[in-house]
Design a protein around this nucleic acid. Structure first.
Length: 277
DNA sequence: ACGAGAACCTGTTTGC
DNA sequence: TGCAAACAGGTTCTCG
């Protein structure tokens, strides 16, 4: 479910409410998500204060006052939501962890498919941790530009669509925003990655930045179960030019063929064959 | 070393 | 109506 804009939206919803608060009680209902939960998770969390909530790639990073970081990934169907008093109880079938803060605020981690994960990592070991050591640059950071992208794309024979989904190339993009960025850049998802290196990469980078930035401003894309931490739905799905729009006319293009859906590496790709070359 | 495909899960939609 | 297949925002492992 969540790509960078959705995770960032969750982070922005959580941070002002949670930063500075202490875990008064933690209720853990599952020992395993995508990977096993940390040993003694409840004991290690209880009494800790949250210094800050950050993000790297699609991971939420809760920095704690003991030098550890709670790492959260939402997988395909995960949510982290703040329950306000009259709200639901956090006892749903897929509510795996409930965090009770010292001011009465409750945060629930819900994930029907359990592709998400929660783990604890020492802050100093974060960069070298197996989850992080292979990650590419942040697409909205200074370390990402056409030259950097080109250097990774050169020598890659696979289609640009699947290459951009590889978090070693650049982080944060998922199926929606790859399709949207390639559409905006007029680049065919089937084109081999190596042929995008150079001028096409220079053209693509600003579109990646723009589509992610616009999506964050819109609170992300709410298709099925995604919502921000406050339960608000994003509305960027209304701005999707191609994703999920098979058969619809391609916006701003009189090609007549409309948006096509193909499958690449087992996942749907949406694009306009006339505009994207 | 690289890339395609499978696997991990549950829920919802689609098609016969 | 009913059941089976297809599909879903991600990551990681295996195999060729």
């Amino acid at each position: 479910m969540p790509e960078l804009p959705e995770v960032e939206t969750v982070r922005r919803g959580l941070a002002p409410v949670i930063e500075g608060r202490t875990f008064a009680r933690v209720v853990q209902r599952r020992t395993t998500l995508r990977v096993p939960m940390p040993e003694n998770f409840v004991a290690r969390m209880t009494g800790r204060r949250v210094i800050s909530i950050g993000r790297r790639a699609k991971y939420l990073l809760w920095t704690l006052d003991n030098g550890e970081v709670m790492v959260v990934h939402l997988g395909m169907s995960g949510r982290m939501s703040i329950l306000s008093p009259p709200d639901k109880d956090g006892n749903g079938r897929h509510d795996h962890v409930v965090f009770h803060m010292d001011d009465g605020v409750r945060v629930v981690f819900t994930d029907p498919r359990r592709f998400g994960l929660i783990t604890l990592v020492a802050e100093n070991d974060l960069e070298d941790h197996r989850l992080f050591c292979h990650l590419g640059p942040e697409p909205l950071g200074n370390a990402f530009d056409g030259g950097v992208l080109s250097s990774v794309l050169r020598g890659r024979k696979s289609p640009i669509k699947t290459t951009l989904l590889d978090q070693k190339v650049v982080v944060g993009l998922g199926n929606i925003y790859v399709c949207e960025a390639l559409f905006r850049a007029g680049i065919s998802p089937r084109r081999s990655a190596a042929t995008v290196a150079g001028k096409r990469a220079d053209r693509l980078v600003p579109h990646i930045r723009d589509v992610l930035t616009e999506a964050i401003e819109a609170g992300g894309s709410s298709l099925r179960d995604y919502a921000g931490a406050d339960g608000e739905l994003g509305y960027f799905q209304n701005a999707h030019a191609v994703y999920g729009r098979e058969g619809e006319p391609c916006p701003g293009c009189a090609c007549g063929g409309g948006v096509q859906r193909i499958v690449q590496s087992g996942r749907s790709t949406f694009f306009c064959a006339a505009r994207q070359r």
